[in-house]
């Protein structure tokens, strides 16, 4: 009775219902994308895109255009800048990534400090799941669902793109297009997730579920399912935790993600640490 009451009692508040729906969706969308990012080795790139959207979000706010548009332009733009700097200099990729995203993030921080109503922007940095406004919620749900649909339509193409782009090219699949599609999906997902956990922790949502699932299975379809479940479970449980402990929601959700990962790392039958003892 205690448990059931504990789970249902918060549902009498509209803000909790909204937060749970939204965090669940964010968990699922990020879980799916995280499989591709883990397999493609794009973790650092994901972090870079997440930080780089900051100035875009601030500018969008100032110009009264949808935050998603600003975030998207800067997210994709950052990757284009990374590619351009790499082609013009002798620097290695991770150096250039570190350079570009910290520069853009710094620009975002300066813009935040120079913009009058800076309360909203702290929410962008740290997330504001429990206080999300209805228009933001609608936008987030819309983008989240769109992302899910695109990933599921292109599921196998994206898998082939990550696994063997040479073969994809040789049978006439446009891998440049797939590259930009995946990049766009990552940017959109970041827009969705930053409402929930904030820019600083977004990358955890985009890596941890995929990493956890990767330790648990050798089948891609199962990996997708497991990553979605991890993301969903962490998001919902994290939101409850944050309600009862009165703690930062984003932090609670990511902590749950990390807990799943540690459990998988310890207990996974084939790739866990425990199998050796």
């Amino acid at each position: 009775m205690g448990l059931i009451h504990g789970l249902t009692a918060p549902l009498q508040y509209e803000f909790m219902v909204k937060a749970l729906v939204l965090s669940g969706l964010v968990g699922v969308v990020c879980g799916v994308l995280s499989c591709y990012l883990t397999l493609k080795g794009w973790a650092l790139l994901g972090d870079a895109v997440a930080h780089s959207v900051t100035p875009g979000v601030v500018l969008a706010y100032v110009l009264h255009i949808p935050l998603a548009v600003g975030a998207f332009v800067f997210g994709v733009g950052s990757v284009l800048i990374i590619g351009w700097i790499q082609s013009q200099t002798r620097l290695k990729e991770d150096t250039v990534i570190g350079l570009v995203f910290t520069g853009l993030f710094a620009l975002g921080l300066v813009l935040i400090s120079k913009t009058p109503s800076n309360v909203d922007f702290l929410h962008i940095l740290f997330g504001n799941l429990l206080g999300i406004a209805t228009p933001d919620m609608i936008q987030t749900v819309g983008i989240g669902c769109l992302t899910l649909v695109v990933v599921f339509v292109l599921k196998n193409d994206l898998l082939l793109f990550c696994f063997d782009p040479t073969h994809a090219r040789s049978i006439g699949i446009d891998i440049t297009r797939l590259y930009y599609i995946l990049l766009t999906l990552v940017s959109l997902t970041i827009v969705v997730a930053l409402q929930a956990v904030g820019i600083i922790l977004v990358v955890a949502m985009l890596i941890t579920p995929g990493a956890t699932a990767y330790l648990l299975t050798d089948r891609f379809d199962r990996m997708l399912m497991l990553a979605m479940l991890c993301g969903l479970g962490a998001a919902v449980l994290g939101t409850y935790l944050s309600y009862y402990w009165d703690a930062a929601t984003g932090g609670c959700i990511v902590l749950m993600q990390t807990l799943w990962f540690l459990l998988a790392m310890g207990l996974a039958p084939k790739y866990g640490v425990g199998r050796r003892v």
Partner: peptide, 26 residues
Amino acid sequence: QVDWQFPVSVYDVVMMGRYGYMNVLR
């Protein structure tokens, strides 16, 4: 040239040879 830790089976890999003949959902 391929990441051998990838979570795909032999069957999955061979099926990738058929992608060009399938519709957009593969």
